[in-house]
Design a protein around this nucleic acid. Sequence first.
DNA 1: TTTTCCATGGGGGTTATCCCCTATCGTCAG
DNA 2: CTGACGATAGGGGATAACCCCCATGGAAAA
Lengths: 216, 216
Amino acid sequence: MGSVIKVFIAEDQTMVRELLMNLLATEKNLEVIGSAANGLEAVRKINQLRPDLLILDAFMPGMNAVEVFNDIRNKLPKMRVLIISAHENASLVRQVLELGIHGFVEKSAPMDDLLLGVRKVAQGEVYFGPKIRALVRRVAGEKIEAMENLTNREKQIVKMIAESKTTKEIAYDLEISIKTVENHRTNLMAKLKLRDIAAVTRFAIEQGMVQTSSPR
Amino acid sequence: MGSVIKVFIAEDQTMVRELLMNLLATEKNLEVIGSAANGLEAVRKINQLRPDLLILDAFMPGMNAVEVFNDIRNKLPKMRVLIISAHENASLVRQVLELGIHGFVEKSAPMDDLLLGVRKVAQGEVYFGPKIRALVRRVAGEKIEAMENLTNREKQIVKMIAESKTTKEIAYDLEISIKTVENHRTNLMAKLKLRDIAAVTRFAIEQGMVQTSSPR
DNA sequence: TTTTCCATGGGGGTTATCCCCTATCGTCAG
DNA sequence: CTGACGATAGGGGATAACCCCCATGGAAAA
């Protein structure tokens, strides 16, 4: 590969964004062609600029990395993606693996690991930071597995329960009977081995399905 | 102030830490005398190095900024502290204000605001980033105030509810009658304007009273 | 083609939550 | 001293949550 690789940076933390831009400016073969500080801006600019490599912060205002990726993957199937994240979130890591994203580095990693990740992913290889590798090993099981056992309907209802919706309201919203919602609730709680609404709510928050600052 | 200000940086994100160290190295009057990537390491080194200015990440592995500050405030009462945070957490901002910390800048703020914050706090002034200022205005009233209106008994019970304890279990644990617990629950929910367990759970998590990974 | 899984709906019951009330006793501030 | 507040305890009732059970139709997998 002799040509220059066009890089786009999507990162809401100004400090990190600036650092990356300065850092990559000194790299041969790389050219930073743009940046964004939130998900929507990122999607718009990426579609326009069509970079070869996207460095994407895991959590940005509005959209997370997976949502951004889903919005652009079909339009730019050859683009390579490196996720950087402040948190080693098990659920996110799993989604990232499933989506076939090429790299994931935690922000607490040494700078060398970050640069290595950028270079590897830029060259078409795959790279995961040390903590992410450890997490992938450790986490193969646990709640993520339980989460996978939930049907789409059940996931939908977990979220609504954690948002303080009552069974009646859920039934109305989904246009199904109260009894069906009760059955789904019973089944999902059994699968997750949870016994009450408080536990379901904690689970949903942990999985990033709802925020603490939900309505009501 | 003609003398050189000794700065210590506590930040787990390597990128941000490196950026700050490089950035502050070019500042006159400032000298970076050390850094740490987690709370314990920070406390140890700060006690040893006795910096004049501490730049402290809000959330680090093991201890958060408030815990670190509480550990060192009495030993180094004249040290100035600037918090930097990726999240604009209402509860944290309130604690920070109460503790008399001198500055708080969000990581998504422009670099100019960050540098301004460092300079102001270093010079003995107070500085809060744009989003933090907005948050303080917006939030001065809402849930934080409500939280303050809770009695100790009520706070205790909020926590237990969010930990999936039933009314009966709470009554047993606190050695009071079920009816008293119900009354406390009713009162606290009215004060917080919450209508069900899911909302109480989200509130408790938001306030840092419980973790999502609670038992059960 | 069976079998398995999912979504749907219901019967029937126990327990917990949620919402009104009233009331006593002690403490602390005005 | 009086009034406000917090912690305690209770009555009574409506609704929601929680836990079994069973059944059906469709889709997907074996």
